[in-house]
């Protein structure tokens, strides 16, 4: 369960570069909810994610995850419970370390005792990693000793997804995580994402610029503009919504057209 209560964030306050990136954002997700987010360029979508992960502390408001107030919790402590995928596939993995080593790092989240610090990757864990890699169906299970830098962007993103969900996170944040991939690979990674989320009932927020995905994936849709959530729709109402309706809603609520230069109106 994620509750965000009127969270605001201003970058570079008091300077010419002052920018109110989040403006009293409130949002509440139940366990198992999967919400998609669309919005104009610079609407604050990524900033909202960074507020949740603790990249910076918010100026006001509260963030509660799984009943725990994490507003002032340190980034590396929160990240035990949060999975975060970026648009850039290079950001999620360490290129000079092997696939196996990257997975071992992700699996550290599960470690509860400090003694685990000095343990090495066990044969049992290697087997587990191999099984999980096999699910990706990319042949990575046979390349576990290779540095991740040798993989393609799609393979790296799939691996990052696996790593982010290896220990089930309380929330999974996907920030246009297929946008930098070629269409075929993007479809594959997206299908994989849906599969993992559905199977494990992971609570998820996903930014997309694909309007079709915004309506077809998950059970809720959010629209952001100027640091605010301008439209939030779920349930029956969402089922009957078309892309045109969504754009119309955005226009009436924010007073302007959706100006995202990469927006995809069809699939």
């Amino acid at each position: 369960m994620l509750v965000i209560e009127s969270v605001s964030k201003t970058f570079n306050p008091g300077t010419v570069n002052e920018k109110k990136a989040l403006d009293k954002v409130s949002l509440s997700l139940e366990d198992g909810d999967f919400a998609t987010i669309v919005g104009s360029n610079g609407a604050g979508k990524s900033t909202l994610f960074h507020a949740i992960t603790g990249n910076f502390y918010v100026d006001e408001g509260r963030i509660i995850l799984g009943g725990e107030d994490i507003t002032y919790c340190k980034e590396h402590v929160r990240s035990k419970m949060i999975g975060h995928l970026f648009q850039d596939p290079l950001k999620g993995t360490a290129p000079h370390m092997t696939i196996e080593e990257n997975m071992a790092l992700a699996y550290l989240r599960a470690a509860t005792n400090r003694h685990a610090y000095f343990s090495r990757i066990s044969a049992k864990e290697k087997k587990k990693f191999r099984e999980q890699l096999a699910l990706l169906d990319m042949g990575l299970e046979n390349r576990m000793k290779q540095p991740v830098g040798l993989l393609s962007g799609g393979q790296r993103q799939a691996l990052t997804l696996l790593m982010a969900t290896m220990v089930t996170p309380r929330i999974l944040l996907l920030d246009e995580h297929t946008a930098a991939l070629d269409p075929a690979t993007a479809d594959k990674v997206l299908a994989l994402t849906e599969k993992i989320i559905a199977k494990r009932r992971i609570t998820c927020l996903m930014v997309t610029h694909n309007m079709h995905q915004a309506l077809s994936l998950g059970n809720q849709t959010l629209m952001m503009d100027g640091g605010r959530i301008v439209f939030h729709v779920s349930g029956e109402e969402r089922k009957h919504l078309t892309i045109e309706d969504l754009l119309e809603q955005f226009k009436t609520r924010s007073g302007k057209q959706l100006d995202n230069d990469r927006i995809l109106l069809s699939r």
Binding site: H76, F86, A94
Partner: peptide, 13 residues
């Protein structure tokens, strides 16, 4: 190796 990855995992850099 990768600052972004470390931030997103539970490692305290």
């Amino acid at each position: 190796d990768n600052e972004h990855m470390v931030r997103a995992s539970s490692i305290n850099p």
